[in-house]
Design a protein around this nucleic acid. Structure first.
Length: 573
DNA sequence: GCCGTTTTCGGCCCGACTGTTTTCAGTCG
């Protein structure tokens, strides 16, 4: 079984943690962390690159040494250096570093002085009062570690973006009502519209920062205040989120917004540019010597660095800085570009509303077209339609279309792709449809080659138009099934098939990296909500977020086209 | 360990908060 990029990255993170505990050169430690980040956000699998004999040292942050280590790890499943380190330092210690308040230095002291290896040892030591006897450890530190242990699982999981949205809304409403707040917004991965967010970074501009901090900690959603200073504070909310608030003056607001929006990698990269230009960039502004030459807005900061403005969704250090310098940034798609939805369900299968209700809701959104895509018979849990039921629905749609003024309802179906790659509905009836949306709902654990070929064979059927939720993953719930995405994308392009970006907040499938890959290969995308009720049409914005993170422009997405053009794209015969 | 429009050696982003200190180390983002 070839190693996943995630597993390679985890190995390097573990190595970095253990080396840090041993007190290794911090820049060497950073190099391993960087490598882990590069590998985990890489679209192709590193094991495939190795199999193809590609030069890994061309990857940013990977030199000859790391390239060699990666090859060894993939070929043997082991890393000799990690083995050596583990012989000196118990590997379990790297688990202790996950506790809030514990870093490499303290973990090392706990291990050397008290022999602590596990969370349990730590709890016992605290109970016996052995911890606060150590030099450098006191009452407060002990309490912080105890609460860190309690929160170990509670606050470590990243939350879905859609779950954060209402929390952020109420937080921002509260902040805007505080007297003296001039500007406020949520920065961090929330502003970058990442599919999941860790904590919420709130940034405010005000003259008297302390007054704002004091008002903030009275917010009634706050469960516990973690830290409180004169310009920043952080707290746990009852909803499970951690909030970090930072208050700056207006002349620093843009610089602080840039800094707190991140990503960390993007920040490091642009600060390097500042250094090259003999400037200093921090969260207060950009400086030539002692003199501040910008910082009020993000736009002026990018300009000072010789860069075009970079949208938050692109700030991941995945090529946006070079594109910005060359004025080749994409003109990202936006919600208003969307003309229709090509995936939704009615109560004929597992939806909760009628055909008419769904059509009416789509019409109210100003859509030109809506495809009704109820499930096929193989998906019995959703009461999939058989041939007879589909014919009845087709007739019903014809009657409805005769009455509709501004919307065209397209006849379609979400057809199961069976294990052998055939479609769960005979050709003669599929020919009656305007389009088909095809998807996998069974046999998730086939080996990668088989799963890939299953999909490619299904695409050989000229009735196949759209591959829905291409990897089947459910965020925080189910891993994607194993497919060769590059092969699928090339296969789709060659055959005139389209890949869906499913906008359900727990799917967002394709992910951002795959969207960019599709764009680079030239495979078309459709953004669909898979709505099971009229209100779920509003999920389109989450699909748009993901598309923007994947560098997609209006031209890359087929449901930005007028119906006439769309129909041409859907006709493979 | 990586990297180069000053450099193949000598740098590597930068600052706030906390606790336990007598001036700063550790942690975090």
């Amino acid at each position: 079984m070839p190693l996943h990029n995630r597993e390679i990255a985890d190995t390097f993170i573990k190595l970095a943690n253990l080396l840090e505990i041993e007190g290794a050169n911090p820049f060497r430690v950073r190099a391993y962390r960087n490598a882990a980040r590069v590998i985990s956000s890489l679209a192709p699998r590193v094991s495939d690159l190795v199999a193809q004999d590609k030069d890994l040292s061309e990857l940013p942050g990977i030199g000859d040494d790391l390239a060699d280590k990666i090859r060894t790890l993939i070929k043997t499943g082991e890393l000799p250096l990690l083995k050596q380190v583990e012989a000196r330092t118990p590997p379990i210690l790297h688990e202790l570093m996950k506790i809030e308040g514990l870093g490499p230095k303290r973990v090392k002291i706990l291990y050397q002085k008290l022999g602590i290896r596990h969370v349990k040892d730590l709890q016992t030591a605290i109970k016996q009062g052995r911890l606060k006897k150590l030099s450098g450890f006191g009452e407060k530190t002990e309490q912080k570690i105890l609460s860190g242990i309690q929160h170990l699982n509670q606050y470590t999981k990243r939350m879905k973006l859609a779950d954060a949205a209402p929390v952020v809304d109420s937080l921002l409403r509260y902040m805007r009502n505080i007297d003296g707040v001039e500007q406020v917004e949520c920065a961090g991965s929330y502003r970058r519209k990442k599919e999941t967010v860790g904590d919420l970074d709130i940034l405010a501009a005000a003259k008297d920062s302390e007054k704002i901090i004091n008002a903030f900690i009275k917010f009634d959603e706050i469960a516990a205040v973690i830290t409180q200073g004169t310009t920043r504070a952080s707290a746990h909310l009852h909803s499970g989120f951690q909030v970090d608030l930072r208050v700056v003056s207006e002349k620093s607001y843009g610089a602080a917004l840039l800094y707190f929006t991140g990503s960390k990698e993007h920040n490091i990269a642009i600060r390097k540019i500042a250094v090259q230009k003999k400037l200093k960039l921090n969260e207060y502004g950009i400086y030539r010597g002692e003199r501040q030459i910008g910082g009020r807005t993000e736009e002026e900061l990018y300009k000072q660095l010789g860069l075009a403005y970079i949208e938050p969704e692109l700030r991941e250090d995945r090529g946006e800085i070079i594109a910005s310098r060359k004025h080749r940034l994409p003109k990202l798609i936006s919600l208003k570009d969307i003309r229709g939805d090509l995936h939704c369900h009615t109560h004929a299968t597992d939806g909760s509303a009628s055909l008419e209700q769904m059509a009416k809701a789509a019409e109210q959104l100003g859509y030109e077209y809506l495809a009704i895509t109820d499930h096929s018979q193989h998906l019995t849990v959703a009461h999939g339609l058989d041939k007879k039921a589909l014919i009845a629905q087709i007739k019903k749609i014809d009657r409805l279309n005769a009455k509709l003024q501004n919307l065209v309802v397209l006849k379609s179906m979400e057809v199961d792709i069976l294990e052998d790659g055939s479609l769960d509905m005979p050709r003669d009836i599929l020919n009656e449809l305007d389009l088909t949306v095809c998807s996998i709902h069974s046999k998730f654990s086939l080996p990668q080659k088989k799963q890939t070929e299953r999909i490619l064979k299904a695409m050989d059927n000229v009735c196949f138009n759209i591959l829905a939720h291409p990897t089947g993953r459910l965020i925080n719930h189910r891993e994607p099934y194993s497919i060769d995405m590059e092969r699928i994308l090339h296969g789709a392009k060659e055959r005139g098939c389209i890949l869906e970006l499913n906008a359900q907040p727990d799917r967002l499938d394709l992910n951002d990296i795959h969207c960019k890959m599709a764009k680079d290969i030239g495979a078309p995308i459709v953004i669909s909500t898979d709505a099971h009720s009229p209100s779920q049409f509003s999920y389109m914005c989450y699909g748009i977020n993901q598309a923007r993170r994947g560098w997609l422009e209006k031209e890359n997405v087929i449901n930005t086209r007028p119906l006439k053009d769309l129909k041409k794209l859907l006709n493979r015969k």
